[in-house]
Structures are given as C-alpha cells and as structure tokens.
Design a protein around this nucleic acid. Structure first.
Lengths: 197, 197, 197, 197
DNA sequence: AATGAATGAGATTTCATTCAT
DNA sequence: TATGAATGAAATCTCATTCAT
C-alpha cells in the first residue's frame, strides 16, 4: 500500500522521447518550416498542452532534439578515436564512422541539416557541443608538428576532412548518391590526400 | 505607342526586381522562416496584392528568386572557364571564382542556403540549373581519361572540389573564418590534392 | 471612371467605431476579464484578423477605447466651465454635469471603471488625459487665495469634490441608488460644504 | 486520537491560509488578470490539485479571500466604534481607523480593489459583509434625528464619509498621495463638514 | 489528503491570399 | 495595373480543471 501511494504518476520518459521521435519524423516528412506544435503533438499521440509539460516552448523542444542528436552522434563517432594508432588511421576511422552513422540514421541527419539552417540554430552552445571533438583537434595539431599534415588553419583542415562527407550524404545535394563501403573509402582517402603534407 | 508600351514594361521590371531584392534583404535580416508576404511587400514598397500580379504565389516568388541567384552565380563562375588552359588551372580558376563570388555577395549566399533547406527546394528543376556546369563535368571526365584526375564517381569529385568552399564561407559552420586570397588559394590547392591522381 | 478608380476601399471609420462600440458593449455584458478579441470581433461583425488592421493589438484597442471615452467625458463636462461665474457656481455646475454625463452613459462609465482596475491602466498617459481639467485646478487655486476654499492639498479637494459622485453612480457600490436631480444637488451641496472655508 | 485529529486539522488550516496568502501576494505582483491557479499553487507550495481540496474552484478561492479580507477589515475598523462618545467623535474615529488600516495593509487593499472590478464581485453576499457596519448606520440615523447630521439618503452620507478615503489611498487615482496623520485628519474633518447639519 | 501529469477549450496573433475598386 | 481592406485558417501557448496513483 505504501508502494501504491508512492507511485504517483511520474514524468514519463517514454512519452518525452515519443515527442522527440515525432518531431524528427515530421521534420523528415513535411520539412522543418511546416512543423507545428499541434502536428508534432498529434503525431506523438499527446495533447499540444502536454508537450508544454516536457518542454518550455517550441524552441526548447527543437533545440533539445538537436542537442540530443548531436551529442549521440559525437559520442558514437568518437568511440573510434584511438590515439595509439597512426594519425592517418585515426582520422580515417573517425571519418568512416561518421559516414556510416549518418547513412544508418538518415532521419537524424535530415533533422540536423534543417535545424542548422533555421533561426533556432543561434540558440545552441556550439562550443559545448563540439567539445567532444577536442581530441580530434589535438590530433591534427600533433600531425602538423610531426610534419604529417599541412600547416594551415584548423577550419580549412576540418572543411576538407568532413564537408565532402556531409555533401555526399545530403540527399538534397546528391539525391542519387549511395553510401557504399567502397565510396566511403574512396572519399576518405581523397580527404587524406587533401590534408596530408 | 510602342514607346508608351515599352515604358510601362520597364517600370514593371523595376518593380519586379524590387520585390526580389526585398525578399533577399529580408531573408538576410529576419530569416527565411519569418519572411511573410506582407513584410516583403512592405519592404519592396508595394501592396501585397501587387506582388500577386508578378508572382503566382509566395512559392513562385521564392523559387524565382532562387533561380535568379543560382543562374547569375553559375554564369559568373563559368566565365572563368577556359578549356584552352591545363585542367588544373581551369578547375582552380573556377573554384577561386566561386569563392570570390560568394564572399562578395554574402546576402545571396545566405538566401540560397536557407532556401536549400526549405520545403521549397523540391520545386526547383536542379538539372536545368546545373546545366551550366556541364563543361566542368566534361573537363573532369577528360581529366580522368588523361590520368590526371582520380577515376572515381563524379559526385565524389565535386564534393571534394566544392563542398569545402561552401563549408568555409558558411557563417553558421565557420563564424570566424575570413575569406582572404591566401585562404582561398590554400583551400583550392588542397582540393586539387584530393582529386588529382 | 476616374472617380471609380480613386475610390479604393478605404479604412472604414464606421467599422473602426463599430469595433469600439462592440468592446464597450461586451465589457458591460460579460466583464472586462472575459472579453476576448474573438468575442469582440464577432460582436462587431468582423473577423478577428480585421481587428488587427485597425488596432495594433488587444491592448491598443482597449487603451484607445478608454482614451476616447475619457476625452469625450472631459470635453463634455468642461463645457460647463464658465470662469465668469462665482467659484462655487462653477464647481457645482461641473460636478452636476459630471453626474449627468455618467448617468446618461452608464455603459461608458462601466467600461472606464473596469479599465482603471486592469493591468492596461498603466499604459495611459494620465497627465495628457487630465490636462483638460487644468482650468478646474486653477479655479481651486484661486478659491484658496480668495479664502473661499480650504487651503489643503489639491488631491484632497478633488477627492471630496468628485469621489462621492463616482461612488454614488457606481452600481457595484450603490446598486440601488437612483440619480435624480434632487440627489445630484444634495450631493454637490455637501461636496461644497466639505471644501469651502 | 483526539490529539492526532487536531494535529491534522491544524496542518490543514496552515496550508489553506498559505493558499490565500499566495493569492494576495500574486495579485499584488502580477495583477488579478494574470493570476492563474497554477501560479497560485506554485507560490503556495502545493499542487494545483491540492488547491481543489480546499476550494471548490478558482472562483471559490477568490471569493473566500475577498470575504476574509473584508471581514477582517470590518471587524478591525469597528473596534473603534464607541457609542458612548459624541456622534462626530465616533464617525471620525472609525474613518481614521479605516484610513490607517488601509495604509497599513496596502496588499489587502490592492486585492479588494481588483476583486471589486472583476466578474467575481457579483458572487458576494454584500448584505452579509456589510452587516458589521450596522451600528454605523444606526448612529447616522440617530445623528439625523438629533439634527446633527443632514437628513439625506444614507448612501449619500456614506459616499461623502468614506469615498474620499478610498480615492485618496488608491494609488491608481492618486499615485503620489502619502497618507500622513495630518492628511487623514484634514480629510476626515472635511468629510464631517460635508455631512454635518 | 495529496499530487504531478494530462488535457480540451480557448486565448492572442499572423499568415497567404482574395476582393472591390 | 495597382491597391488597402478583409479574412479563414492556422500558429503558439495558457488556462481551469480532472485523473490516476
């Protein structure tokens, strides 16, 4: 009976995740701009008012969704990071992991691409999100000191390492491109050619 | 009478361009999502109803604006295309021109980036827009047959040639990156390293 | 034909007043707190969206209504102001006019009473609204120098001159009080007794 | 067992009063119109659902709060009522006590002023609330028979006795008025001049 | 008794588009 | 052609209240 009394209905993490999932689905189906709170709520099977129990407002919901996706992506990709390997192998492994992760979760990728070009993107603490990639930055620095990697600004190194990946997997840019292990390897090798000394 | 007719036509075109300019300005100032027809009309100095004389609806206006920008960009960039030069020189020239064009017209770039991640983007005939880059495609093909360029899928070549440019100049991705002639050259040289055999 | 073209549909002052009238009616019927924009619009026979053509927002509508009523009241009451009369006669005439005006327009009075106790009241420039009563203030000052009126703070004089009027005609406070010429005279005489030296 | 029962009751009453106090505070801070049940509950440190254990609904809570304040005010003010004193002294004492009470509890006054201009005010049994002032009524009647006070309708006497007080202490009407003992005395003397024969 | 979760109803406001002139 | 007025539909969000525990 005590257990009964203590078991007051509790904020439902399943429901909270259902709302996020509904958001991602809807953005994929009808686009970021057409996503209204009502539509998201209906898709998640809750009342629009319920949504406001879990998120302060629409902005909070979208930003939270974005951060969740990016955090998961970062953690997953950086699992491959192994500083005991040669610089080249590490960078390639991380890049390939990124390729694969995006290819396996196209819905998440679509969401983040649309989010990044929305007015909401300014509300995210980018530095915090990118902190997980700090080891990558240090590895590139090390590569430069070892005369393995070109001594150019970091942004340019990153742009050549990872921008081609994003362009290739983006269906808006390359609707017909298919991510195969061969293509991944080809592209990552080219990225290495770009940055290596 | 002909004079009269032409005068009217000229006035029309000025107004029509004023609407497009207003659209681009507003997207830059308040973002794609916050741009309403009324706001665009007010900025252009016309009535909302007038806007519907020149464009079928909002979608038509935005798509027309996008096509105008992309067409102008393509024509401008391809001016540098000179098939009598070595392959490398041509590709570099085109890339640098692209870099410069974007850097010189940041408002147009902002518009296209926002448009490309909107539900409207599916309404554009991409093939038609990209037709202007056909010579580039042929040049790459030629480079492959001459064993100058890696024999990999076209999309991958393009991704490594131009995606880094877009990433670098995109203030959402690289808010602190400054486009200098040195940076342009560094990046284009790296792009060449990526695709060259 | 020229006339036809020039007669573009024009902001309709009749419609604008219809909205204000609807506002006043509704506040009388269902109270200030229950008045929604939709209800006001429906009562005025327009779409809620139309209301926003004439007023920036709900606040603007309510404040405008209040100012209109108060301005009309002030002008009407001060018509009785005749500085050539003895001080006592002037004050009595103004007070009686106020009594009568309120009694004849109970709906307007109800609106202002409710408005004055709403969060909107802080948005009104009271000094501007009360400027019309400046001659009254000066008259009281003059009466003090002439030793006709008690030399006490202005607020106290005003409170004793006019607060009883408002209390008497307020149906919330005196639901059964009937404004008769006799009652008006009785009350105004008492007010004079209060302030006279 | 009795002890247990009483302990529970005491706890209840504290919570119930906490809700009322929270209501008064919130009305003062954010205004009557912005007070929602959730906000009141949060301020009182209880769940919105708990509030419905103590009060049937929002209306019941607000009316109860109003009645509590008015009852306390009436009792406090009428403490000064001493029929053995001369009529004038009694009326003056009561008025001054009213002045002081309001000045000392501005939060309670703010609440009642806002309540009185809300749709809830019709739900109060005014006769019951005003019963406490019955001796005052009788005193005025007596004063009339003794030819001390003007023989005019009761409402008019009350209006001149107490409406100026409410107007003076009301910050909406007299934002700059400061309640000093001198001002209280001046005003009460004027009120007496108004009603005395 | 006590509560956090849940919600239908309704609030204000803006939108893309059309109408009447 | 050009327009200011007009609007139905839909947006985001809050509310008073009830439910399940």
């Amino acid at each position: 009976m005590i257990v009964y009394y203590r078991a007051v209905r509790v904020k439902d993490e399943i429901k909270q995740q259902a709302i996020i999932d509904a958001t991602i689905e809807l953005v994929n189906e009808i686009g970021f701009a057409s996503c209204s709170v009502s539509k998201i709520a209906k898709r998640a099977g809750v009342s629009p008012a319920t949504l406001y129990i879990y998120y302060k407002n629409k902005e909070d919901l979208l930003v939270s969704t974005y951060i969740q996706i990016k955090t998961t992506l970062g953690a997953s990709v950086m699992q491959e990071f192994d500083p005991s390997l040669p610089v080249r192998d590490t960078l390639m492994a991380v890049g390939m992991s990124l390729f694969r992760h995006i290819a396996e979760h196209p819905q998440l990728f679509t969401f983040t691409e649309q989010f990044a070009n929305s007015p909401y993107q300014d509300l995210v603490d980018r530095d915090k999100l990118e902190a997980v990639f700090q080891p990558l930055l240090e590895l590139l620095h090390y590569g430069i000191t070892q005369k393995i990697i070109k001594d150019v600004p970091m942004e340019i190194l990153f742009a050549h390492l990872y921008a081609p990946i994003y362009a290739l997997v983006n269906p808006h840019i390359n609707p017909d491109f298919i991510v195969t292990p061969e293509n991944i390897e080809i592209s990552m090798n080219m990225a290495w050619d770009a940055i290596k000394l």
